[in-house]
Design a protein around this nucleic acid. Sequence first.
DNA 1: ATAAAACTTAAAGTTAACTTTAAGTCAAGG
DNA 2: CCTTGACTTAAAGTTAACTTTAAGTTTTAT
Lengths: 131, 131
Amino acid sequence: MSELTIGELAKQAQVQSSTLRYYESIGLMPVSKRINGQRRYSQEAIKRLSFIKLAQQAGFSIEEIKTLLEGFELNVPPLSQWRLLVQQKLLEVEATIVRAQQMKALLEEGLRCGCLSYDQCYALIAAGDHC
Amino acid sequence: MSELTIGELAKQAQVQSSTLRYYESIGLMPVSKRINGQRRYSQEAIKRLSFIKLAQQAGFSIEEIKTLLEGFELNVPPLSQWRLLVQQKLLEVEATIVRAQQMKALLEEGLRCGCLSYDQCYALIAAGDHC
DNA sequence: ATAAAACTTAAAGTTAACTTTAAGTCAAGG
DNA sequence: CCTTGACTTAAAGTTAACTTTAAGTTTTAT
């Protein structure tokens, strides 16, 4: 059960096989074990991919995710460059959350009150008021 | 004060002039008034651009933003296609918020406990536990 | 044993969202 | 008046993140 072919991993992790080859080629996924030239993966790969997807959906680029993962793997010292990156990324994720919440409020307001224009709604939301 | 050149608008809205021309060319911004062939904008444009930026940061594509803005402008009927899109987008924004919050927790945990590997952290977060 | 399905690599193609370039026109200061 | 900076269009170029293609090998099912 624990040795997955590329197709099996792709199915379980909800990505395409070509994406897995691509991730390997750019160093985002480690070069996997081969059997007769074909890739074999462990369950570990699923976890790594789920982390990658989550980070992507949180707005991280592939380069940033690579850096993050390297840091997790190296068990970095307290004042490293990596920690600074993580701290900076934390701020960005927090900003993302705030903006997504604003957008949510805007959409709800738009649905609820049938505002005449987006900027009317926008002004209302900004003022913390409602229709 | 109310008539802005493309450069002035670009500066105030924190985008490049070329982006404004591009947005006009694809119909995301309305074709603006011209004076001797040069664009002039009202304050309205700033509001529209701030909405566009917010929506983008919330994960909307330009095509989706166009559709959203059209709906806001048309004052659409209760059961329109537009309302369905907004409802669907609301769900997506909510999912974005949840994932960004998960990512935030992961980063905080990574910083705080100096975990050995991302999936260790991942498992901990998933279990609601800590190091 | 063989046919179909899944795998391989390397390289080219795709899409979104801009940005840059080229060649020229307009506007503001000295 | 003239130069310099900001503007114009149209078209080509860029970047990230994949996806597709082509030509071939391996595995699986009958």
